[in-house]
């Protein structure tokens, strides 16, 4: 798959993969691109060009991870992007999935779907807990550690001293598994007494969300965590 570069037109970018829409929104980019290319828009919106290219290319192409370059991005930049995607998940993706699911349940009178609704509720609860944990513990730790690495401050605040980045990514798998199961139960084991369109709409949302979430997790696991581990080594040496 071809990589996008700074001369790529934004219109071409979205024609190539419309799933990138929420990603560019997170950088404050809106539609109506005319003939602007990536370099133009980054200049206009004051966006770090290389970081933008890295994020969209990593989304588009799962093999794309130019580690050295990715590690050169500041922690603030990465954390800021991850925080924005958290907001999207909570404010846009989850309510949309919920709306589709409620709609499906209301119209189909199926007991199976009510059980699936409880399962979804549990999944959502766990995901939000996980997001909260990152927001309240992991991200502040990363930002403080960066300050120490940049010699802006001498040491970590007392409550973060014993913390390490490896302790926080363990939960990913559990939450991911549940989303996978949710999709698979609907696909493989649902009784066929539901409205096609409603169920399709619900599944489309789930697939799209999973894609977005996977990308988010890859940025955490492949960019943030290795970068922080390198900083930890340096600071704690």
């Amino acid at each position: 798959m071809d990589l996008f570069d700074k001369k790529t037109k934004l219109a071409f970018l979205i024609h190539s993969n419309y799933l990138l829409l929420p990603v560019i929104n997170r950088f404050g980019i809106k539609l109506g691109f005319r003939d602007k290319n990536i370099e133009d828009i980054c200049l206009e919106k004051n966006i770090d060009l290389n970081f933008f290219l890295a994020i969209i290319n990593a989304f588009q192409n799962h093999e794309y991870f130019p580690e050295k370059e990715l590690r050169s991005f500041s922690s603030e930049l990465i954390v800021d992007y991850l925080r924005k995607s958290h907001i999207d998940f909570k404010k846009i993706s989850l309510p949309k999935i919920e709306q589709q699911l409620n709609n499906l349940v209301e119209k189909s009178h199926s007991d199976d779907l009510k059980i699936i609704q409880s399962f979804y509720a549990k999944y959502k609860e766990e995901l939000i807990e996980h997001i909260q944990d990152e927001e309240e513990n992991a991200f502040p730790y990363v930002l403080e550690l960066q300050k120490v690495a940049d010699k802006k401050t001498e040491s970590l605040p007392a409550h973060l001293v014993g913390y390490s980045i490896q302790s926080f990514e363990k939960e990913h798998t559990n939450v991911d598994e549940k989303l996978f199961d949710l999709k698979n139960i609907v696909i493989k084991y649902l009784e066929p007494n539901y409205q096609n369109n409603d169920c399709n709409a619900f599944l489309f949302e789930l697939f799209q969300f999973e894609r977005d979430l996977t990308d988010h997790a890859r940025i955490e696991d492949k960019i943030l965590v290795p970068k922080v581990m390198a900083m930890e080594k340096e600071v704690k040496a």
Partner: peptide, 22 residues
């Protein structure tokens, strides 16, 4: 065999297939 990994996913499977009573 089932393609279900989590414990709660298996519980949902068991209920949907009448293996246990909800």
């Amino acid at each position: 065999k089932l393609g279900i990994k989590s414990i709660s996913g298996l519980t949902v499977f068991a209920i949907l297939n009448n293996l246990i009573d909800a």
